[in-house]
Design a binder for these strands. Structure first.
Lengths: 338, 338
DNA sequence: TATAATATTGGAAGCCCTTCCATTTCCTTT
DNA sequence: AAAGGAAATGGAAGGGCTTCCAATATTATA
């Protein structure tokens, strides 16, 4: 059962069948419908492998994403899936949970030529890898990560973190804890550093000295958040507010704070990052990233680069501080010290 | 750059290269390493389309899943992804959000021959579709859905719902609300019905009359849960406990109950279904489904059917009632009526 | 050492499409 | 009616792999 059978059944040549299959305009409507009928009658379906061999196009996009079950990635994934579908691309999922996996996929998989393009989310991509992509002629778009050789969608993590920090300062907080995420070498590389910088800048611009004791680095999980909170709450002069680099960690912090009998926001204010669905549910003040939109635009850019190569560019996306119930003015007078 | 180049570089025939590529045992170790070297030197990567054309195998599995961003499906997806990767299969995601999409994918996509097998989650699959799969010789495994012509992994929704209901009764509850999910024609078909049956059986076996006012049908979302709760709480004789067919709905119910100034579990007890991650976080009593395990076993079965066809079977998976903080003994004496 | 059996290898044929060019058909235009 | 151009069509030539059988190399056996 192949294209020849269809051609015979419809009484046309295989070229015509192929043109119908590919929606070419250069087919007389009458012929087209004759072919269409034959296809339906025979329940014919083109062989995707043969197609890809013949044309060099798979109509498949690869998505390389770490820990795809985490809310942030799910949201990105949602935008990605929707957009890929709209454009008629299939989506294959490459989940990364270890550095070895990352290296493996970024080196080997893209070259399997199974995908026409690759969207890489939140993973650091080094120069040699980027060069390799270009050499292999594989379009790659980065989301929430940056490389000068590849089109990258980023948010301004520095200014976002600074904004969050300054917001807390404006509420009267001076002891502001900062919970960062581990870098796990290849994961979220720029992100961690940039948000740290933003935090420091926020302090500096308000003449608040940087206190390393107030900074924790921990896993990007709820458990990580709890751990960090436990540590911060042990400080002789404990923070009155904590800024975490992800909502998930912020939720862990919230749990721990409450578990220790402290009130949010009265005793401790909390600000997260991402604005995952749960943030709204649990009334968490946070920096909103346009996650779904990042996925959407990433895919659109990728498809456009597949169709017509472009020089790499950096595209900045906006964040927004969303004030909810986990922040409030610091109860002690501004400037008061213990 | 193809297999011929590699063969020349290694000084062997293409057949040998192919055998090395496919891990055939019938290659002298020395030859194998020579070929391997050539592959590495040339940065050669086989063309997946050509491969699939030649062999008829894609090493790709399709996952057809509704609303994949919902926690239940994410958990299943996690098991699926992990297992597919372990077995060296790529995974392509077909997300279904409307009936048209469902019909489209179940009819057209599987036939694209892009996938070697299909795992269908929580979607009703009618006989004509099942027959079609078999005719096309496409292995299909169902998870959380049932069709006699296809291998199906299910939980005993009837007895699970009955168990939940009887648990509430054992706590002294008599007015037990039941929040079901809409059937949306093709979605979660059996599930809704079965859990309703279980609820009724639970009541019946304790001689509690069935009261249709206590039953709501609503979307499988938090908003749906809130809406249902709002309705149930308006009843002149309001329920003292509510059993929802999903945790997500149960969380919505919880929100609404609290928003109305009522306490959980003191005023209203709540039981959910699924045991999503959030259920633990929010201390929700629920029926735990082995979601991740369902995905894992589904894929393993699918792969085994790809390798060697089997007659369809129904595989039942166990559920477990997990008692947490949203349930407690009914405060009014058993049998008391307003 | 000769022979049989086994392990390894080479490469032609085939898988099913797309593409492209040559050909045919259909309109216009003169 | 003839000629020219445009639109539609047919099909040969790939494209890169797997498979299978024939051919060769190796080892065991007599």
């Amino acid at each position: 059962m192949n294209i020849y059978d269809v051609a015979k059944q419809a009484g046309v040549g295989i070229g015509t069948v192929s043109r119908v299959l590919n929606g070419s305009l250069k087919v007389k409507p009458e012929t087209r419908s004759r072919v269409q009928d034959a296809i339906n009658q025979l329940d014919y379906v083109p062989h995707s492998g043969a197609r890809s061999l013949g044309s060099g196009r798979n109509h498949v996009l690869g998505l390389v994403v770490p820990f795809f079950t985490r809310p942030f990635f799910i949201e990105v994934l949602r935008g990605v899936e929707m957009t890929a579908t709209i454009h008629g691309y299939d989506l294959v999922l490459y989940n990364i949970e270890t550095n070895e996996q990352r290296d493996h996929y970024l080196r080997q998989l893209p070259m399997r030529r199974r995908v026409d393009g690759l969207l890489v989310v939140s993973l650091f991509c080094d120069e040699s890898e980027a060069i390799r992509f270009r050499k292999m002629n594989l379009p790659v778009v980065l989301v929430d990560s940056y490389n000068p050789l590849l089109t990258s969608f980023v948010v301004d993590n520095i200014s976002a973190a600074q904004q969050a920090t300054e917001f807390l300062i404006s509420l009267g907080h001076r002891q502001i804890g900062f919970v960062n995420g581990v870098k796990a070498s290849s994961f979220n590389f720029n992100k961690s550093d940039d948000r740290m910088i933003g935090y420091c800048q926020g302090l500096a611009s308000n003449d608040i000295p940087y206190n390393p004791e107030l900074v924790c680095v921990t896993e990007w999980t709820r458990a990580g958040g709890r751990k960090a909170a436990r540590q911060l709450l042990l400080l002789p002069q404990r923070p009155t507010a904590i800024f975490a680099v992800s909502d998930v960690q912020a939720l862990g912090i919230m749990e721990e704070v409450k578990a220790q009998g402290l009130a949010v926001p009265e005793d401790i204010c909390i600000v997260g990052f991402d604005n995952i669905e749960l943030a709204e549910l649990l009334n968490l003040t946070t920096i909103a990233q346009p996650m779904c939109e990042m996925g959407k635009q990433g895919i659109e850019q990728l498809i456009s680069e597949i169709e017509k190569p472009e020089p790499p560019q950096m595209l900045m996306m906006d964040v927004e501080l969303i004030v909810r119930g986990t922040t409030a003015a610091h109860s002690a007078p501004v400037g008061a010290r213990a």
